[in-house]
Amino acid sequence: MRFSGVSAIVFGCMVLVGCTSTGAGVDEILAKPSLETTSSIVKPGNVVPPGEIGTAASSEAQPEEMTALAPSAPIPDAMVPMARMPETRTPAAEPVALVVPSKPPARTFERGQVYRHRFRDAKPINFGRVSPRSLAVHGVDVSRWQGEIDWAKLRSQGANFVYIKATDGGDHLDPMFRKNWRQAGEAGLRRGAYHFFYWCRVASEQADWFIRNVPKVPGALPPVIDVEWNGESRCKQRLPRKKVLEKMQVFMDRLERHYGQRPIIYTAPDFYRDNLKGEFRDYPFWLRSVAAHPSKVYPGREWVFWQYSGSGLSHGVDGRIDLNAFHGTEDQWHRWVAANAR
């Protein structure tokens, strides 16, 4: 049978479609919730359906991605080549009258009201004289597991800032991120986004995924890389310390170049002990320590935020919520925001 030119093109397209099809059903192609959680959050029995966001496939590594962690892997993350811009020649400048540019106006931030925290705790801890209650500025961190949030009410209860889960790995977006991001901003909270790091995914891919989904907006807090061992992950591999540090550095460098802010490192005691003790002295830390003051759990480590509870209770949110405090006075908080927010 002879084909006309048009018929040949149509036939070629059909062949390509057939070759690329995986045979997966629609339900398998649509976004699936990530199985990852931070160490402080227990998944509730009745999960609120995803909000207005749909994503690509699950961010768990596929078999071919897992092999990239094998000893025979040819190129580590730190050696991923960066795209080079083509060379251009600058034309000769025309002589112009010398004009002294006016000094740009300094960036200013509204200090905003700091609300005294009124949170309760389902599992209260007696921290003694170093109680987080002695700190002036408290906040929360949230993800899809908190469901629908009354942000104005949550703020009035003492949530002066919030870190919102944005991404996992290289292809999962928290289905509540955009809604939480928008509504938290409308309610006047200082907001930032965090990324749950996967050890079975290339670091540069994870950074690009976070950048793709988290907007650059005035006043946003520095981005956070959440690094911890997670027993619920299907990625069970624990990398050597050297490899962990390399992957973190690749991710953080990309975010710092894009957002112009040095990322904050969130971690838990076991991961810190295995990988981070004595490392990244020039990075701010957000430390999980729900049974004792950070000075006892992370001796010698300076910190900006302390996650002191994973069982907080507050008006404005159903169920439990992570509670955090800023390391400083109210005035130090305003000065830190002015220096570090975009």
Rank of each mutant, 00 (worst) to 15 (best):
M66E: 10
T38Y: 08
A92W: 14
R182G: 10
A152S: 15
G278D: 12
P95I: 00
V42N: 09
M252Q: 07
W145M: 01
L276N: 05
P63C: 02
G158C: 04
P284E: 11
P105Y: 01
V337M: 06
M248I: 10
G231E: 03
W336V: 03
L323H: 08
G54R: 09
I149F: 14
L313W: 10
V42K: 12
S131E: 04
R144A: 08
H117K: 10
N213W: 08
G260L: 07
P71I: 03
Q146T: 00
A338S: 12
R191N: 06
V290Y: 07
D27A: 15
F210C: 05
D174A: 05
E65C: 07
V202Y: 04
K103V: 01
S59V: 06
P76L: 00
L313E: 13
F11L: 11
N340F: 10
I53A: 15
R320W: 13
P86D: 13
S314Q: 03
A159Q: 05
E148P: 05
T267Y: 07
D150Y: 13
K243D: 13
A193Y: 02
L35N: 09
R212A: 14
P101K: 00
S58L: 11
C235I: 00
V140T: 10
I29H: 13
F197M: 07
T20V: 14
P74C: 09
V47M: 08
E186H: 14
A338L: 06
P263G: 04
T20Y: 15
V162F: 13
G139R: 02
P299S: 05
A207M: 01
L313R: 15
C200D: 09
R155H: 14
R335I: 00
V290Q: 08
V290T: 10
A92K: 14
R118D: 14
L323N: 01
I211H: 04
D168S: 04
W229A: 05
A68I: 03
S143W: 08
E52S: 13
Q183Y: 15
P132Q: 06
D274W: 11
A78K: 14
G170C: 01
H258I: 00
G51E: 07
M82H: 14
L255K: 03
E110M: 08
D282L: 08
G192I: 04
R190H: 15
P284M: 10
G5L: 13
R288F: 02
L221I: 08
S314Y: 09
V47C: 07
R111E: 12
H195D: 09
A166Q: 02
I29P: 00
G300T: 03
F127D: 01
S156K: 13
K247D: 12
K296P: 04
I225M: 11
P50L: 07
A83K: 09
L98D: 14
R2W: 13
R238Y: 10
I265G: 02
A159E: 10
A61C: 08
M14N: 09
Q261P: 07
I164D: 00
T88Y: 15
P74E: 12
K243Q: 15
L189G: 06
E52K: 11
V99R: 01
V290P: 03
L287I: 06
S21H: 14
G5D: 15
L221Q: 01
